[in-house]
């Protein structure tokens, strides 16, 4: 899913960033957000709707619509479309509204 050739932009080679998604180890690139790294790995479903458990992906990519909320390092409702990916992040799909500890 990464763009290889582009007439205007150049995407320089970036360092691989390991993270886990529901326990499975995957790699994103430096500069990715959590949602972009998952998308590059072919993962479009990020969460489930609260009541009817319908699959949800990102929609707005500006941190506004809440469709991409996931549990990151134990913290629920993280807006993954604007949160930069960091090494060894533990990223999980979110069920329900999440609990504030």
């Amino acid at each position: 899913m990464r763009i290889k050739a582009h007439p205007i932009l150049s995407f320089e080679a970036q360092k691989a960033v390991p993270f886990t998604y529901d326990g499975q180890t995957l790699y994103g690139l430096k500069g990715d957000t959590i949602a972009s790294a998952l998308h590059a790995n072919g993962i479009k479903k990020l969460s489930e709707s609260i009541h009817r458990k319908r699959p949800r992906g990102f929609y707005c990519a500006i941190g506004n619509c809440a469709s991409c909320n996931m549990v990151v390092d134990g913290q629920p409702n993280v807006r993954t479309c604007i949160t930069p990916l960091k090494e060894h992040m533990d990223i999980r799909s979110q069920q329900g509204k999440g609990q504030v500890k």
Binding site: L9, T33, A40, K44, K45, R56, G57, Y59, A61
Partner: peptide, 19 residues
């Protein structure tokens, strides 16, 4: 459904993140 995106969101994904 995942796969339905705002056009500007897709623009961000492509032009900012190269995906």
């Amino acid at each position: 459904l995942p796969g339905v995106y705002a056009a500007g969101a897709v623009q961000t994904l492509m032009n900012e993140y190269g995906i």
